[in-house]
Nucleic acid binder design. Structure first.
Lengths: 131, 131
DNA sequence: CATATCACTATACTTTTGGATACCACTATA
DNA sequence: TATAGTGGTATCCAAAAGTATAGTGATATG
């Protein structure tokens, strides 16, 4: 191939997409992993829970993971932690107003995921219809 | 606390959410990881690319990861692989019509991610405005 | 006084994910 | 014949993510 007829050389993504990926990654960081969506969902449903309550609601999670994920979600302003002055002291975790904005993303993931199951596994009509 | 005044005991998620999490997980599997979104984006932009082209477009990816992710995306019907009868033989990867449906999820992730950056890092007005 | 509950933390381990490097067969070009 | 480009594999390694199990100190209950 001669240099004259240089056919469309495809350039690296950054030329086209700029920093498009950065906020997408940020969003994915909040939703990915095994436990973040279950925890957000639980707190969206119940508004407020204690630590042990969450341990029971989110089945299978270990206290280590729960503790770690709650810290992450608090740092990301999706939930608030409050130490209540009771005996014994209790700690409550609540979804924030901002935390509720996750719903739009989660329902888009849900919607696409349902179609994907149909397409890829030909699985339909199951009880993916709650919430 | 007496059994009489059992105060709202919070039950495990499955009672409320059923299998809600399953398609959400399916969707996340397609979009999470370091390389899937960049590859999908590249193929959405260029429609068709060769292996080495993708290696150059998706900066930093190793052939091992590229090969692995392409297989995954093909199994998930998002892209098609075609061996062209040229000399030397070339292989093309193209986005499928179905693959283009990822756009809605990705733009929702993007939209939410931009707001999240504003909220959490107070970073605004950057060039997250391409694509 | 024994046991249980609350909200965790500590330690060690396994699994998953991704990276670095080298290399393969084939073909075309200089 | 040497070099470069095609589309990948094969190995080994490091880091991240997640699991299993035990234990802490304070308080409350039977």
């Amino acid at each position: 191939m001669k240099n004259k007829e240089v056919k469309d050389i495809k350039i690296p993504m950054k030329e086209h997409f700029g920093n498009y990926m950065v906020p997408v990654r940020d969003a994915l960081e909040v939703f990915s992993g095994k436990w973040k969506i279950p925890i957000i969902s639980a707190l969206t449903f119940y508004e407020t829970c204690g630590f042990k309550e969450l341990e029971r609601i989110v089945e299978g999670i270990t206290p280590k993971m729960l503790s770690k994920e709650l810290k992450f979600l608090e740092e990301n302003l999706l939930i608030i932690r409050k130490v209540e002055d009771t005996r014994p002291i209790t700690v409550t975790y609540s979804i924030t107003e901002y935390g509720k904005t996750c719903k739009s993303v989660m329902s888009e993931l849900y919607r696409w995921g349902v179609e994907h199951r149909k397409k890829v596994f030909n699985i339909e009509g199951q009880t993916w219809d709650k919430c």
